[in-house]
Simulated scan of single mutants.
Amino acid sequence: MRPVDSFAGDGPLVLGLPHCGTHVPDDILARFNPTGAALADTDWHVDRLYRDLLPGVSWARANFHRYVIDANRDPEGVSLYPGQNTTGLCPTTDFEGAPIYLPGQEPDADEITARLHAWHAPYHAALRGLIDRALAKHGVAILFDCHSIRSEIAFLFDGVLPDLNLGTNDGKSCAAPLQEAVTLVMRKAEGFSGVVNGRFKGGWTTRHYGQPGTGVHAIQLELAQKTHLAQEAAPFDYDTEKAARLRPVLQAMLEQLQALAPHLEEGKSHG
């Protein structure tokens, strides 16, 4: 199993898909308990949601499951949300805080390092390559990091999550016009609730790559899974009718970002 699949388009947009993969190597899967083996914390069908929404978009998709190693976590293991419940670089619990390994089978430091080299690093090499390619071609690159999560997870957040959760690291990971444009699309999206920089402000990917001063902008969108799944429980089936309502919203966001990209380059050139 290849760690990552990718496609190099000719536009300035790059989609990151770090949590769609379900591959777990046999030696790791054998050490999971039933909770871990269920792989419930997958970003189910997010790659399908974004497929063919906009010509020329580049993308990188991790094929490995986040329980192997989380491609949206700092490789140094630094917490994204200090003081809040979260899962780490090589998770040992699920989103409910329940163990995913059989007793005594969690990875040690050497194994985590090996997983970093085998899985995490290839994904980010592919993503970095696409970003650098877009930057060289257009003078600007816009990373749109694509995620989903169940609407209610008491271990991670209170209450019910809004449908659309935009994260820009409190405005630091992208130019203000980009945040404003996707926020406007979200606000106009009939039947969908939304928030900007709420519980999910952007993971390590958004924070690491989103450096507007260098021409690289990053935005994360965390979708509540009720927006596109038949139910937020196994077997996590894709709901085509729900997706048909959501996909135009996602498409409009990407179109707005692409339309703004040349103006970002103009501003950088004359700034």
Rank of each mutant, 00 (worst) to 15 (best):
F7K: 08
D10Q: 13
G11A: 12
P12Y: 05
L15D: 01
G16L: 12
P18V: 06
H19K: 09
H19R: 10
C20F: 12
C20R: 07
T22W: 01
H23E: 14
V24I: 15
V24T: 08
L29K: 14
A30G: 05
R31V: 06
G36A: 11
G36C: 11
G36K: 07
A38N: 10
A38Y: 08
L39T: 05
L39M: 07
A40H: 11
A40V: 08
A40C: 08
T42V: 12
W44E: 00
H45Y: 13
D47F: 01
L49W: 05
Y50Q: 05
Y50I: 04
L53E: 02
L53M: 08
R61P: 05
R61N: 04
A62S: 14
A62I: 05
V68A: 01
D70C: 10
A71S: 10
A71M: 15
R73Q: 05
D74L: 08
P75N: 13
G77M: 07
Y81W: 14
P82G: 06
G88D: 04
C90Y: 03
P91Q: 01
G97F: 08
A98H: 13
P99V: 12
P103N: 03
G104A: 08
E106C: 07
D110G: 11
E111D: 15
A114Q: 13
R115H: 09
R115N: 09
L116D: 00
A118D: 11
A118I: 01
A121C: 00
P122V: 11
H124P: 14
H124M: 11
L127V: 11
G129S: 10
I131M: 13
I131Q: 01
H138Y: 05
D145L: 09
C146K: 05
H147Q: 13
R150V: 03
S151F: 02
S151I: 02
E152Y: 06
I153P: 00
G159M: 07
L161F: 09
L161N: 02
P162L: 14
L166H: 01
N169A: 15
G171E: 07
K172R: 15
C174G: 04
A175M: 13
P177E: 14
K188M: 10
A189L: 09
G191Y: 02
G194W: 06
G194C: 12
V195E: 11
R199V: 14
R207Y: 07
R207T: 13
Y209S: 09
G210I: 06
G213V: 05
T214L: 15
V216C: 09
V216D: 04
H217D: 10
H217C: 05
I219C: 06
E222C: 02
L223D: 00
A230F: 00
Q231Y: 02
E232T: 05
A234D: 13
A234Y: 12
A234Q: 12
F236Y: 15
F236Q: 02
Y238S: 00
Y238E: 00
E241W: 04
A243I: 01
P248H: 10
V249H: 01
M253E: 10
L254R: 03
Q256F: 00
A259P: 00
E266Y: 06
G267D: 13
H270P: 02
